[in-house]
Computed example of a mutant assay.
Amino acid sequence: MKRKAPLAVALLHYPTKDRAGDLVATNITNFDIHDIARACRVYGIDRYYIVHPTKEQLMFVERVLDHWNVGEGSKFNPMRKTALRDVRTAENLQAAMKDWGHENARVVVTSARSLEGQERFSFQSFREVLETENQPYFLVFGTGFGLTQDFMKTCYGVLEPIKGASTDDYRHLSVRSAVSICLDRLLGS
């Protein structure tokens, strides 16, 4: 697939919900830094942003990135350094968009739940948009028990949920798995 549209990925840790549906900021995990960065690198994503409102969590990410980009990790595993080169942090999505240089990017959110009243993209229709438009897009993934409805309503559109083959419609994937599946469906050969 030949993508024309600039495309970045963001992993939002706020505004998210917990198991009870309450508004929370989830913790950043080391696996999400590495594994999503590797998937983004494989599929040619312009930037991968880890978005969290607290400086302590963002400092954790920066320490991990420093270890692999300039520290001992850069000598130990050069492939990891390559995968992490386009990872950035931001306190919110607007700061990420500004850093990327595309403050007018259209935000497409992912969700295991269906939402009414928004532009809805199938994987095929969004793939076609990425192949034909020059408009920048930000593909946003949530953590915890998903992004809040209020946040998702502010986005340009929603990508269809991933549906597997379980008989009971089980869809609680790790975000790392969801990112990889989505990127492959949108950008894979």
Rank of each mutant, 00 (worst) to 15 (best):
L65A: 03
H67K: 06
W68K: 00
D18P: 04
R85N: 10
H13P: 13
M97D: 07
T82S: 12
N30K: 13
H52I: 01
M97N: 09
H13A: 10
D18A: 06
A83Q: 00
F60M: 14
S122T: 15
S111D: 14
R47Y: 13
H102S: 03
G44Y: 02
R19T: 06
G44C: 04
V107M: 14
M59D: 15
I36M: 03
T82W: 03
A90W: 02
L12H: 12
V87E: 04
V107R: 09
V42W: 02
A112Y: 10
R47I: 09
A37M: 00
S122M: 08
D46G: 11
F126P: 02
C40T: 06
D66F: 12
V9Q: 09
S74D: 04
G117Y: 01
T54E: 14
K17E: 14
I45D: 03
T54L: 13
G44Q: 00
D46S: 15
K75S: 06
D99H: 09
P78G: 00
R120E: 15
I33K: 10
A95V: 06
L65V: 02
K17I: 08
S122D: 06
D66Y: 07
W100K: 00
E116P: 07
H34N: 04
V64C: 12
G101K: 05
Q57V: 05
V42P: 03
G101F: 06
E56G: 11
Y48R: 07
W68F: 02
V42E: 07
D66I: 07
E116M: 10
T29F: 04
L65S: 04
N77W: 00
G44W: 03
D18F: 01
V87Y: 01
H13Q: 12
H52V: 04
A112E: 12
K75F: 01
N30M: 12
I33R: 07
Q57M: 14
A10H: 08
